[in-house]
Design a protein around this nucleic acid. Sequence first.
RNA 1: GCGCGGUUAGCUCAGUGGUAGAGCACUACCUUGACACGGUAGGGGUCAGAGGUUCGAAACCUCUACCGCGCACCA
Length: 876
Amino acid sequence: MAELSKTYDPRTVEPKWYQRWTDNRDFEANASSKKKPFSIVMPPPNITGVLTLGHVLNNSIQDILARRARMQGFEVLWLPGMDHAGIGTQTAVEKWLRKNEGVTRYDLGREKFLQRVLEWQDKHGGIIIQQLKRLGCSADWSRQRYTFDDNYVRAVEKIFVDLYKKKLIYRGRRMINWDPAAQTALSDEEVINKPQRGSLYYVRYEIVDQPGKFLEVATTRPETIMADTGVAVHPKDKRYADLVGKEVWRPLPREKIPVVADEAIDPEFGTGVLKVTPAHDKVDFEVGQRHKLPVLDVLDPDGKINCPAVPELNGVDRFEARKRAAELLQERGLLSKTEPYENNVGFSDRSEVPIEPRLSEQWFLRYPRTKEALAVVKKHLIRFFPRHWEKVYAQWLENIQDWCISRQVWWGHRIPAWYRNQKSEDRGQKSEIYVGIEPPPDPGNWRQDEDTLDTWFSSWLWAYETMDLKTRKKFYPTSVLVTAPDIIFFWVARMIIAGLQFKPGKSQKIEDNIPFQDVFFTGIIRDKQGRKMSKSLGNSPDPLELIDKYGADGLRFGLMRIAPSGQDIRFDEKQIEEGRNFATKLWNVARFRQMHGPSSAAPKIDKKKLSIFAVEILSRLDQTIDVIDTAYRDYQFNVVAQALYTFVWNDYCDWYVEAAKIDVFGEDEAKKQSALAVMDYVLSAVLRLLHPFMPHVTEELWSTFGFSGESIQFASPPKKLRLPYPSSRLTAAIFDLIRAGRNLRAKAGLSSSYKVKFALRSDDQEITAERPVIAHLLNASELIIDPKFKAGPGTPIATTSLGEILLVVEVDRSAERERLEKEIAKVELELSTVEEKLKSKSFVDRAPRQVVELHRQRQKNFAEQLAKLKQAREQL
RNA sequence: GCGCGGUUAGCUCAGUGGUAGAGCACUACCUUGACACGGUAGGGGUCAGAGGUUCGAAACCUCUACCGCGCACCA
């Protein structure tokens, strides 16, 4: 057995074991295995991604589940991979090119740009995989997948074609969310509403047949006036009833537009008149459709005004144009007032710029299987943890809109559609369409769609397209998905729909085709002020630095202990420090055991020779195993971590090991061996229970102790011993007694290193038998056990259920009196509270018998204590 | 506007009807033969507020306030 160093050094231990595990191919899943399957697919991080605390949390949880399952004898597949992240990666590479070479993607052109992305990907991409390895993740790296693998690309194209043939995918000219920065369409889910402070402009539209009279319109977007093709009022609005059907002059550029009546107008808002801009607003578009108003587009894709008729604004950026339009109107006397106004503006999730509603020809998916998707969750065929996400999920599915799946970015899966006889460059022109995996037979006359697919249109197949048929047969549906809740619509819901639609399972049954049985939603990690971690705020600590400082095990354990299921987590580095401290504590208590000779490979304990303290710790171990089992069932990782922390630190280190030192350092060889065997037993159990959380340090200790020839990764979790536990009450009482004695010492102002004499008024044989242990834990020079012990005046005294404990040393009498008075007051208060309760007839009659009994017992104890304390006071 | 979370010690959080808890921080003592990344003892709470149910409420119900999130609206 190698000797343990004085402190645990994760920096050498952790990489050593990770290397060995991968060399042994311990993480590789065997699809031919006869063991029961347990599988997780890793939410694929972006290829451009670097490890964040969110990843650490997410992947630690997955690793815990995978490692626990492996120990429980499951054949485990934890399938890792990466996502090409269309817009994200394109943006990142463009930024890099601009910075390093001063070129844009347009300078390079599509082909060259894509080549550069591939080069960039090979050079800078996938760092996160290495980082996950440093965290200790036991994923099967031999099966690492990428959404751009050839097979995967093929699969994405195939389902596009399939859905097109089923008329679930269609091409149409509709209002979409346009991101002027990334210059692409977005799905509704990629738009985030934020309240923005702006102005409400009141603009005067002159009535055509009543010159000099004006209709006032309130708008937040005067820069779109040029695209107005009408104004609308509510049909029942009496103020404007006579104007409906007439015309007004649009101020910029001056032109006649009709006044229409439409139910969608809120008469309460502004002046009750809406300027109708069908090209730049969803509601306006619908109003325009109902009244056959023309659609006039005055915005270029990059967000600049395109309106030569108003040269002052033409070519100006939309926000600048807003100001200038207001000024222009002001100059012409057409702006009656401006009010400060706050409204919600949709922002692009990616580029963080306001999106533009825009009429555009795009590809859409009509979601299939939404009712089934709702049902599988409602009927708990798929279980959500925590449960309340079911409601959010249902709300989304019940109000689902078609999904805009085409993106005007170059980096992504190219849409397998070709066009022929396209007359004009306008995307709106109808032409012959060919959709297929293979290019059309006569490629010369066809032109492939320039667009790519939404990244999530590939990710939604992740749960099964990452597996070959054999693997799928063994491991699909997966056991559990671990994910942050912010992608519940983007990913979780869509994967469920994909599973139900494409039926990749081994049969047609629904239960074979759901992508996962459980979904565990993690919390979101925030900083101490409760803000989300973000690059721009710079409040996101680098996990790699944390690993360097505290070790991967410390980071994992610290984080898991503060990550209550489903609650957001306020990050505090102190918690990680505690994780590290815990690893050190474990290390040192193992060292202590190791200093007293070799351990047995398969520790056995002789039940007849156990000390009462051994029985106590073994019983608490059983309880801990129970708590852990229950907590795992509900994915309450913080409960598991906390239970282990308390057991190791408080129960084992503070009480058992301290109590056992008498035997370990004593003369009685049998007692010594028994104590050491208990330590071996507990350590062996604790290491296995902790291994999923702290894989490296537990493996290191496991191998040092030689508990088995094998890696701890495949050792079974400890079973309960189920000893009869008769002495629990006694040990608890002894611990109370010791605390009371230590308290007397501290209150007397005596140094804790100074050995003092204690006396215990008792004649209990069981207590007498434990005299050496009690004396040791009290750091007593001597412990007298004598029911009739007579103390001199001023001897500090405390009452316990085992008898009065006295600190045999003369102290200042008045100080002791004062202490006693306080003690008496405290007990009196407790006594009166209990008595009050017992006086209540309704309590005695209605409360469960055990509860009443408990109160009676307490009343008795307090009364006895009080009597003894008062007696002690008399003797002073 | 609708929905979902949350509000417990200075901080971070546990606590599903029966004596209010943990860790950190704080105070005092201790470098005692695993560990100062440690040990011992201690101080610190109208459980956001109001009402209700109950013998008994931090917990269950109703309302209010505040914080966070999602959806809708957003001229």
